[in-house]
Design a protein around this nucleic acid. Sequence first.
DNA 1: CCAGGGAATTGACCTGCGTCAACACCGCCC
DNA 2: GGGCGGTGTTGACGCAGGTCAATTCCCTGG
Lengths: 234, 234
Amino acid sequence: MATACPPRHQFEDAEWAALCANGAPGKEAVSRARHFLPGEPIYHEGDAATGLYCVASGLVGIRKVDADGESMLLRLVRPGQTFGYRSLLTGTPHGVGAEALKESRIRQLPAAVVHKAVADDPAVMLAFFRRLARDMAEAENKVMETVTASCRVRFLRLLLAFGGDADDGMGRGVHLELPVSRQDIASLIGVRSETMSRVIRVIEDEGLARFKGRHVDIPDARRLAVESLGVLAD
Amino acid sequence: MATACPPRHQFEDAEWAALCANGAPGKEAVSRARHFLPGEPIYHEGDAATGLYCVASGLVGIRKVDADGESMLLRLVRPGQTFGYRSLLTGTPHGVGAEALKESRIRQLPAAVVHKAVADDPAVMLAFFRRLARDMAEAENKVMETVTASCRVRFLRLLLAFGGDADDGMGRGVHLELPVSRQDIASLIGVRSETMSRVIRVIEDEGLARFKGRHVDIPDARRLAVESLGVLAD
DNA sequence: CCAGGGAATTGACCTGCGTCAACACCGCCC
DNA sequence: GGGCGGTGTTGACGCAGGTCAATTCCCTGG
């Protein structure tokens, strides 16, 4: 998946663009923006939907807690992406919670505006469907991975998803920044934070990557990509 | 709308009903039916979508294989439910495969008919969105479960989902039939079949249920439901 | 500058589940 | 009947990763 995306920070999602184009010419009029601090919840599991959200800047995490209070980070929502559309469109309570992971600026579109846009233009609904289909595919991959792949492999794949695949071709050496805390990373791949530490240590010892705070240096991205495929005994 | 088939086995899904009402008055004309034997594939991962499917009778499994060839059963599709709509509507190749788990009768609606129905009536798209939202919620639950719950608990929950919660109130004693082989059950909860056998043995020893072939007797459904919540101390 | 608190790391220990291998069961065809 | 492939069961064993506890690191506020 080669991603060529320089201007990626604004309205890259089709449905949000459609909504703004459709809902109102002066989109600033209907879309309010709010500020959230790290850890601050945007909505809780079980809440009724009140609108549609879009990350203007910062980072949002979609979280779910199960019966025994165990919580897990299901996915990240990056700048330009919308979220909260599912329960808004189905009219059911949120099945997951959303919270700011970094200081974030979140645009919100009132439910009425969204419903009007959906009613006015059938293409909007299709755009949301596509978005949900992508999320669904990712969820299915996640199920497979957590069952079949070791936590080491899952972490390597996450690194790639974070941009470790941005190989500069020959410059040899990729640098990236972890978007969230290690605890959250652990939660994303479904392991304890202690295990996360150990895995990172092993990966450093193998020379696959170096970790300093949230900075990661990957000397050989190609090798890391190969390792991320799992131990398929050559 | 209920013409051809017996009581509950037909068109219970909103979107399929809408399609038939909408697409053609004489629906038998557009909806072809085919027979599949157990294990027979309906479509493969990576195939392009050619139409929409609905289980008239039998049972269908949605399967996914990962890079190393490991395969896993993601969910079951029961009579009356549609499947294959996702890649049809997004225009992308199937991300998962579908196969008959029992001898099955599958109705198929050509892509053109579905697209016309979607274009004619916006409510159809919404119905599909709702369906996908339900599937997505289940996928998210599955992710959580595989990470947090033991395989014993996951199996108990699956039993409940299979109808073990059909408590007759006072008659004390629920009987149900496993819809698939033990290998497939193992695959559904993401464990090896050997582990599956052992878990079943433990559950029998605890007196939670008795297994004979595909028949299961649950003496105390309430107790099983409690156990399925996990080992939350005292 | 130090104190305090959360994040991260490390160690010791234990167990759930995968793996490998052997075996039992059960329908099916010759 | 007798071999036989597929499905399920059982045993022995190893290890990945969870758990508990102690320690260090880092950041922020006084």
